[in-house]
Design a protein around this nucleic acid. Structure first.
Lengths: 198, 198
DNA sequence: TCTCCTCCTTACCGGATGGTAAGTAGCTTA
DNA sequence: TAAGCTACTTACCATCCGGTAAGGAGGAGA
């Protein structure tokens, strides 16, 4: 058996997928180890405890989300924001694992005594939205509320799609995803144009 | 120790709160029993297994959500829809437990071999939206996509508020919730007026 | 009074859980 | 060649998990 080049990164990726699917309590160290093809202690060797492994997964996820914002940093703010949300919507629909992880982290987050790995991500998006023409006349809370709704509608679509497909069929679920993409783009344009969305 | 009048309903309420906070795997029968002040077997006597208890919690939740829609059934469709989403937003922000339960159920739902307790809820809302002036010119998928986004933005706000309060303070979180309420009302009015939201 | 029913109780079980202890193969450095 | 490091391994442990077995208190009905 060949050992992976970067075992730590490998284990984080496997754990991320399992935590996204089963949640923190639903995924066990033994299962993770079996999937990785190593013993339980291989994981504990790198991360010490299950909780720290979970923390590493979330930190890694936050870094990935932040990096996605910079993918189109050469565009002007309005185009940048539009591009980001279009890509975000497409990526969420195609590979919902990261989104499931984000939402699970929100549900399990302890309001006190925690670091907030997602904070830089939100701050970066808020700065970007504020720099668009539409962001000029809005308060910080208005921008954050708009961002919350944009992120929320996209992430909710991603996590509800399996259930919607089960209820109404895969075709309807795909149609809904396609319509949602159009709506998301339109909403970003409306925000950037400065039209009152509230 | 006085026994509750309707033990089954009491246990469902306690279990709902625990499942909302900790998730299915995070809440144990022993913990639920301790909160209810009875032994573990009291719960198993009524529900047989933990999974069936969870099922009863979700069925009860779905019934409550459906009942909420009919609270303003005397209004015309557009006013009814607006009233529903305003109440939904307010209730989600004030008492996010039910919303957390819904989102956890979505994350944990098995696409096959499951019943869908939320299906009647979605169908009722879709029929209501279709009956508004704005619903006339839209396809079923467009209406469902719009509903998904309305539900998503509202539920996401509810589950993200604790984290936002931790990151940016309680005041900012409250401001965001207030701004979101305005935006949700505006979006329902725009939909009902038939303005193209996509 | 006897039986049945609901709503519990205590006692117990096999298996899974996160975590500890101690040791090892193989490479790198001194 | 000896020491030390990384990246593991097997063996083990106390605790907790969901679930079973058996029985009992107390009210209702015959």
């Amino acid at each position: 058996m060949t050992r992976p080049a970067d075992p730590r990164a490998t284990y984080i990726a496997i754990a991320a997928s399992a935590f996204a699917a089963q949640g923190y309590h639903g995924a066990s160290l033994a299962t993770l180890a079996r999937e990785a093809g190593v013993s339980k202690q291989a994981l504990l060797h790198f991360f010490g405890t299950k909780e720290r492994l979970y923390g590493a997964v979330l930190t890694d996820l936050a870094a990935r989300l932040c990096a996605d914002i910079e993918a189109a940093a050469d565009l002007d703010p309005a185009q940048h924001l539009l591009s980001y949300f279009q890509n975000f919507h497409a990526a969420s629909a195609a590979k919902p694992e990261d989104i499931r992880l984000v939402v699970r982290a929100l549900l399990d987050s302890d309001p006190k005594a925690r670091t907030w790995p997602m904070k830089p991500y939100l701050e970066r998006l808020a700065a970007l939205a504020a720099a668009t023409p539409g962001g000029q006349g809005r308060t910080e809370a208005q921008i954050m509320a708009w961002l919350s709704q944009m992120i929320g509608r996209t992430e909710y679509l991603a996590i509800s799609t399996p259930a919607v497909a089960g209820m109404f069929g895969q075709d309807m679920a795909s149609e809904i995803t396609a319509e949602s993409a159009t709506m998301v783009s339109a909403e970003v344009r409306r925000f950037c144009a400065g039209t009152n969305t509230g």
